[in-house]
Design a binder for these strands. Structure first.
Lengths: 66, 66
DNA sequence: ACTTAATGTAAAGTATAATTTACATTTGGT
DNA sequence: ACCAAATGTAAATTATACTTTACATTAAGT
């Protein structure tokens, strides 16, 4: 699964720290998700999508093998 | 977080078993998600939404406390 | 009433998401 | 070059998603 969190963050000029605080997780959680180290829960995906004003499927995309 | 998987399944006349096979998880995983026992990963949410032809936000909804 | 498919539930185990702490590296401004 | 903010990375721990097995309950058909 890939995601465009980094891009959306850049659009809004938002740091990992700020995003982390907005959705109430640690900064490392955001960093790890961006780095593709793990797949977030649906709650996180919904919160992130909401903040960026985009549908979940536009920020998170399935890949081969998912 | 609540979801409308049961309803969408009913619309399509699909069993938990069938849905489970389509997204490659156990039947109990579907059952537990429907029962609200836990929040699925974003990969599962995307797969489920895809099968029902609905956006993720329409099937999975945040609640107070999420 | 009987049978069968579908669903609900539960316990134990495994895999993985998320946290915390800590430090290294990069980037941008002055 | 220096400083500070932001990002990358990593190990250890905790929380939770998911599996497997197994059994109980419900719903529907005959």
């Amino acid at each position: 699964m890939k995601n465009s969190i980094k891009v959306e963050r850049a659009k809004k000029n938002m740091t990992q720290q700020e995003l982390a605080e907005l959705i109430q997780v640690s900064r490392q959680t955001i960093n790890s998700i961006e780095a593709g180290k793990y797949v977030p829960s649906t709650v996180l995906a919904l919160k992130i999508a909401k903040i960026f004003g985009q549908p979940v499927e536009l920020i998170f995309e399935l890949e081969e093998g998912d």
